[in-house]
């Protein structure tokens, strides 16, 4: 099995899907000659030409809205929003249009498109190159939302997203692009959207996370293991739909639940996971559900100490794990 970086998994999956299906094409800002500001689409223009790797004008609403139109005609656009922070001008097209075409037309019109967006902080990106935006979209039925944490999951889930007949928001944590390497199964590797993954089994506490924070959780689990705390770490991977079965089983297994994400807590993904567990398996719990999330400030500040204050870390997660284990 080849080992590759997270960003290579993005690129190679795009390449293989574009080879497989001539309807798949890419559009976004700087995706062509430059290969994307992160180089996720590097070299694809050489293989597929500028008709299928389209450098768009600097217009996020059009990147999504034109993608919707192409999808209505039977194409499979993969639209790149350069930074998730810049997705807001396209919010109306995503929520009012992409998410609703199927419902509002009683199934006669639908939008098979993927919107890729690098998100997340810890990269000296300040308020407008660090945001986690997933909760804003997770509220909308009609959308699917994926946030993988490993190269293998990127490959399997991006392939599933491109083949999906509904709009999928595919959030790539930019802090993982070159920081994480992993095995990527060869060939037609697809992970169904809506399946969480137990990244580490454990008996004492259950930790739910996704994205970069998931890696902090795995590191923290190693740290507390030495102290005799055996943490189960579940990667949600798919934020809408949530994998209810895996979540409930994992919560019931240890009876102690911690939810960790970089996005702030209020009305976030963790709130939904906590509500789900409280509604369905309350009597399996031995402790209050805890959350460890970004702080309630509008976005991530820039200076190193401020950014460090905002960001989660293995140490912060480990401290929360100890608190939960001791309950």
């Amino acid at each position: 099995m080849p080992v590759m970086q997270y960003i290579e998994a993005v690129r190679e999956t795009l390449r293989s899907e574009m080879r497989r299906d001539p309807n798949v094409f890419i559009m976004g800002e700087d995706v062509g000659k430059r290969g994307g500001v992160f180089r996720a689409t590097q070299g694809l223009i050489d293989e597929f030409g500028e008709e299928r790797v389209i450098d768009t004008p600097l217009t996020e609403s059009a990147i999504v809205g034109v993608g919707i139109g192409a999808a209505l005609y039977g194409m499979r656009p993969v639209c790149e929003i350069q930074f998730a922070d810049f997705i807001w001008p396209a919010m109306n097209q995503i929520i009012s249009e992409a998410a609703r075409f199927r419902y509002r037309s009683y199934g006669t019109w639908f939008v098979p498109m993927v919107i890729r967006a690098p998100y997340g902080g810890g990269v000296h990106g300040g308020l407008y190159h660090s945001q986690s935006v997933e909760a804003h979209f997770a509220h909308s039925p009609g959308l699917k939302i994926v946030a993988p944490s490993t190269p293998g999951d990127v490959a399997g889930l991006l392939r599933a997203a491109i083949r999906d007949d509904d709009p999928v928001l595919f959030f790539e944590h930019k802090g993982l692009y070159r920081a994480v390497k992993g095995e990527v199964p060869e060939g037609d590797y697809v992970i169904p959207i809506g399946k969480a993954d137990v990244k580490r089994d454990g008996r004492d506490i259950t930790v739910f996370s996704y994205g970069k924070a998931l890696h902090f959780c795995l590191e923290a689990a190693q740290m507390v293991a030495a102290e005799g705390i055996d943490a189960m770490v579940v990667d949600l991977r798919s934020l809408r739909p949530l994998d209810e079965e895996t979540i409930l089983n994992a919560a019931a297994r240890t009876g102690k639940v911690l939810i960790v994400h970089e996005d702030n807590a209020f009305m976030g993904i963790g709130a939904e996971v906590a509500a789900l567990i409280a509604e369905k398996v309350l009597f399996e719990l031995d402790a209050p559900i805890l959350r460890l999330c970004g702080p309630e400030v509008p976005a991530m500040p820039y200076s190193p100490p401020l950014e460090k204050w905002y960001m989660l870390s293995p140490e912060k997660v480990a401290a929360k794990m100890r608190e939960l284990a001791a309950f």
Binding site: F25, E51, G65, V66, G67, I68, L72, P77, Q93, E97
Partner: peptide, 17 residues
């Protein structure tokens, strides 16, 4: 005006095909 972008996208797809 959201539909203007959809029309443009259909036209783009038709041109590609």
């Amino acid at each position: 005006a959201t539909q203007v972008l959809h029309a443009v996208g259909v036209a783009l797809a038709a041109k590609m095909k």
